[in-house]
């Protein structure tokens, strides 16, 4: 298990170095950083002096090493646009996106898994078929359309929930949370639901397909032959055998959601990283883009590592290699 962990960590570190290289190349070679930083009145001498001070005359490897060293310490430089430390900008925005994605993921699992089980177990019933049909709509509706429809329904017509912003937030250290205030929670509902629609249908369809497969297996039939009640067979014995792909999917999708929440964030004017990134792109704010790229990759890598470890937790067969040879014979 420890060897497994070390191997996974080394893999993750390697991936991060590769991504850092990419981010560094963008930062260093797409446009001239000096040109973007100085104002028009700067003399040639000023520029040369800045170039020297920024270390841009050093060799490629030295600059890359410095970039990685700084990045590890959370130093991505100063945003071109608003002259603020990039890390401060991200620290400001990250909690908003993270909470949005977290709540959307929880919604998609809490709603999607039971729907998947129900549609698999009662696959011939009308309700299951209606859900199955509805899920196609859910998969094919773009999330901004869902968002706009939700705003139209619950904010404009009914006036129940706010249509934009994050509501009141509470500061815990550098983390600003909206989960602790009523207005923060209310503001979270529509964006989270909008972001989770696609996920719900994805989880539901996946669980349904896996359940149909599992319910045909021998150990399910044998569990029934042992007299285990049907509901227990379905929700305990079968469902647990379906969770592996759901974990994979969820892990990957959390990364996707964080990276691509920008559509939802734009629709709901959610002050998250997506909005930050859109603004950075508009102003060619390279340090912010490089930091965003690295952060999103970091999240992907961490999630994938966590998913691998969770596998071992759910499925004992992946836990140890010694087990195969250790079985009793006869």
């Amino acid at each position: 298990m420890i060897a497994f962990l070390i191997k996974r960590m080394a893999n993750a570190a390697f991936v991060m170095l590769a991504v850092a290289l990419l981010a560094f190349v963008i930062f260093r070679f797409f446009g001239d950083p000096v040109e973007m930083m100085v104002n028009e009145q700067a003399t040639q001498a000023d520029r040369a002096e800045l170039r020297e001070r920024l270390g841009l005359n050093d060799g490629f490897a030295t600059q890359y090493a410095r970039f990685v060293t700084n990045a590890v310490q959370g130093d991505f430089g100063i945003s071109y646009r608003n002259q603020q430390d990039v890390m401060v900008l991200i620290k400001d925005r990250f909690p908003a996106t993270f909470e949005l994605v977290l709540v959307a993921t929880v919604i998609s699992l809490v709603v999607g898994i039971p729907l998947g089980v129900i549609t698999a177990v009662h696959r011939r019933s009308r309700l299951a078929q209606a859900l199955q049909l509805g899920s196609i709509v859910g998969v094919s509706l773009p999330s901004f359309v869902v968002g706009i429809l939700l705003i139209l329904g619950f904010s404009v017509s009914l006036g129940w929930l706010p249509a934009f912003g994050r509501g009141e937030t509470v500061q815990i250290g550098w983390w600003s949370t909206g989960l602790l205030t009523p207005s923060g929670r209310a503001a979270l509902v529509l964006p989270a639901v909008s972001l989770s629609t696609f996920q719900i249908t994805l989880v539901m369809r996946l669980v349904r397909a896996e359940m149909l497969e599992t319910l045909r297996s021998d150990y399910i039939k044998f569990a029934r032959a042992r007299g285990v009640p049907a509901a227990r067979v379905q929700w305990r014995h079968a469902l647990r055998n379906c969770l592996m792909p759901v974990i994979t999917l969820t892990g990957m999708q959390i990364g996707n959601l964080i990276a691509f929440a920008l559509v939802t964030e734009t629709v709901f004017q959610w002050p998250g990283m997506g909005m930050l990134f859109i603004q950075a792109v508009t102003f060619v704010d390279i340090p912010v883009m490089a930091a965003y790229l690295l952060l999103v990759s970091l999240i992907f890598v961490v999630l994938n590592t966590v998913v691998d470890i969770t596998y071992a937790w759910v499925d004992p067969r992946l836990r140890d290699d010694s087990a195969r040879s250790g079985g009793a014979h006869g």
């Binding site: 021998d218 014995h237 055998n241």
Partner: peptide, 15 residues
């Protein structure tokens, strides 16, 4: 009941 294939009769995820 005892079924044919002991490899698949037991739920792999439970002790």
């Amino acid at each position: 009941a005892v079924f044919q294939d002991p490899l698949t009769s037991l739920n792999p995820l439970f002790r």
